[in-house]
């Protein structure tokens, strides 16, 4: 089946979440029965921005066969309903039977609008999708931020799906070819532009929690707002950032932007060093995709130990300064 995928651009080319969505889209496109004599299915990508910023060869490496770009002269900046209207317009151009986007704030919102515009259901945060004989899709998707998986039937034309940002890996193709990049002029309704983002630089320009390679986590065991300095220093030494549990933000010890978990940020670092965190299930939903989890905790029976790779049993107020000293000595 032909699949249309929304691609988000960033400074590096295409966001990691969109590469994952493209991998999912390609697997969906090639998963169904091919029509006799038909050429391969179309994996179409659509991006918003200047045409010269669309990395055709990168899109080709992720299986894109047709790329569409909506330039700022036609639609400037992020306007969720206008982006959804653009996807709707591209359905007849690409003959797509499914539309896929990353399960990001942007992708979820645009596909929700597309669902409302087309009157079709939308399945959020999917892990897998495969065509059934009756034309529906069998999907598995995250509930409870990934703590549960729902197996479901998605019965919609087009099928609308967002892709979990922390599970489906981005996988390039073996035989890549650069797709043509075609400029697309969307047909918009004035109401589509009522809500449009003005973008400004974020307040903290440091390493982002969501993409950090190392996250040093602090929980209730840190003891209070004054206990985070050693964690900050450790994070600096490791080239990472500090993340915290929900109790820390609900106590007002640290800003909510640092929260790891179901209602905060989902992280995917090489190392999550969780200090003084018991491991409530909502917290684990945010860090389960870390490659390695190392715990520092006074309680050997804390739930987080049953979901971690390594642990040091001890008081973080003792262990972290000793670790910081050892790392400084080593440097």
């Amino acid at each position: 089946m032909n699949v249309l995928c929304l691609v988000e651009l960033d400074e590096a080319g295409v966001t990691d979440a969109s590469l994952r969505a493209l991998t999912f889209a390609r697997s969906l496109a090639t998963g169904g029965p091919a029509a006799p004599g038909a050429t391969g299915p179309v994996v179409a990508a659509v991006a918003f921005g200047p045409a010269d910023r669309v990395p055709a060869s990168l899109l080709g490496r992720y299986g894109v066969t047709e790329a569409y770009v909506v330039e700022p002269s036609a639609l400037d900046g992020y306007a969720p309903q206008a982006w959804a209207r653009t996807l709707e317009g591209l359905l007849s151009v690409t003959l797509a039977a499914a539309v896929v986007a990353a399960g990001t704030d942007c992708g979820s919102e645009v596909l929700a609008h597309l669902g409302a515009l087309t009157g079709q259901p939308m399945a959020a945060n999917c892990l897998t999708a495969s065509p059934e004989a009756d034309g529906t899709l069998a999907v598995s998707r995250q509930r409870w931020a990934g703590l549960l998986i729902e197996d479901a039937i998605l019965d919609g034309t087009p099928a609308l799906l967002t892709v979990a940002t922390d599970v489906v890996p981005p996988v390039p193709v073996d035989d890549a070819a650069d797709p043509a990049v075609l400029v697309h002029e969307p047909d918009l309704d004035p109401a589509d532009l009522r809500v449009r983002a003005a973008v400004s630089a974020g307040r903290d320009g440091g390493v982002s929690l969501a993409t950090a390679r190392v996250v040093v986590g602090g929980g209730r065991g840190v003891g209070g707002p004054d206990g985070f300095a050693p964690l900050e220093e450790l994070a600096r030494l490791l080239g990472g950032v500090v993340g915290v549990s929900r109790v820390v933000t609900s106590q007002g010890w640290r800003p909510h932007t640092q929260q790891v978990g179901q209602t905060g940020t989902k992280i995917t670092p090489e190392l999550y060093l969780a200090c003084g965190i018991s491991g409530a299930i909502q917290h684990m939903a945010g860090c389960a995709s870390a490659k390695h989890i190392v715990v520092i905790n006074t309680d050997p029976a804390a739930p987080i130990l049953s979901r971690a790779d390594y642990a040091v049993i001890g008081d973080l107020a003792e262990v972290i300064p000793a670790l910081v000293a050892a790392l400084k000595e080593r440097a």
């Binding site: 989890i293 715990v295 050997p300 130990l305 049953s306 971690a308 790779d309 390594y310 642990a311 040091v312 049993i313 001890g314 008081d315 003792e318 262990v319 000793a322 670790l323 050892a326």
Partner: peptide, 12 residues
């Protein structure tokens, strides 16, 4: 279950 590396600062 996590592998325990040690206890307190001795585990550093």
């Amino acid at each position: 279950q996590a592998t325990v590396l040690g206890t307190g600062a001795d585990a550093v």
